Computed example of a mutant assay.
Amino acid sequence: MRSVGAVASEVAGLRVVRLVALPALLVVVWWAVGGSTFYLPGPVEVGRAFAETWFSERLVDDVLPSLGRLLAGYAVAGVLGVGLGVPIGLSRRLRATLEPVLEFFRAIPPPVLVPLIMLLAGIDTPMKVLVIVSGCVWPILLNTVEGVRALDEVLADTCRMYGVRGASRLRRFVLRGASPQIMTGLRQALSIGIILMVISEMFASSSGLGFTIVLFQRQFQIAEMWSGILLLGLLGLALSALFRRLERWVLSWYYGSGAARA
């Protein structure tokens, strides 16, 4: 019989193969068709442009400001979404009053609000942060409301009987019980935030990833443009992996004791 270590190594090897196989296949296809037109350079040319473009002062001038605006807008949306979602989820009367208004504003696509936000907040960093907030807040808010609404009534009665009230009840029962739904909303908001980060930087901006990619497109620097798109994909992948680890840690009680180490 094989040892436990051998089985674990085999499982780890299969996991690595699954993670690498599809990206490798996509790169092979890209290499096969790349360079066939001016607008589709090959991976070697894009890789060279990637190194020359992003391992330079553009990392400080464009990438870091974009990430800063993304994280700022995401954090504000998280605080607003959870802060408003908890009382709305707890109060049936408040929920019935606000639900039509929330559904109305949720139905408005955030990119449509960009001209209005520009008029109200100007064209600098506050505008870009507000655009990110305007889209990220809704999945967090609505998932928080649903998570609070779905709290176990038996556990609620138990807290009441044992005198668990106030901040202790909010922290130990409400937020903990609703945390799976809250984390779902935060995960959805992260991908929306990346999209809105790029869109906000395409309007009257002088820095950022969105601005730089559009600038490359207008100057027909096609390889550099593709390198910016590639960088956005890599950033999204890295942020998703970091969030997955954070989610496993926050919800270790939900997934099991070994989730935080997964």
Rank of each mutant, 00 (worst) to 15 (best):
M1H: 14
R2C: 12
S3Y: 11
A8C: 09
S9M: 12
A12R: 13
V16P: 07
V16C: 12
R18C: 10
V20N: 08
A21C: 08
P23M: 04
L25C: 10
L26T: 10
W30I: 07
F38M: 10
Y39W: 11
L40M: 11
P43A: 10
E45H: 11
E45G: 07
G47D: 05
A49Q: 05
R58M: 12
R58G: 10
V63N: 02
P65R: 04
G68F: 03
R69K: 06
A72I: 09
G73T: 03
V76G: 03
I88M: 01
I88W: 00
I88E: 01
S91G: 06
R92Q: 12
A96P: 07
L98Q: 02
R106W: 08
P111D: 03
P111K: 04
I117F: 07
G122Y: 07
G122F: 09
K128C: 05
K128R: 10
V129C: 07
V133F: 00
L142N: 00
A150S: 15
M161Y: 11
R171G: 06
R172G: 14
G177L: 00
Q188P: 10
I194A: 10
M197E: 03
M197R: 04
G208C: 03
F211P: 01
T212Q: 13
R218M: 10
R218Q: 14
R218V: 05
E224C: 08
M225A: 04
M225T: 01
S227Y: 03
L231I: 08
L235Q: 08
A238W: 08
W249V: 15
A262I: 12
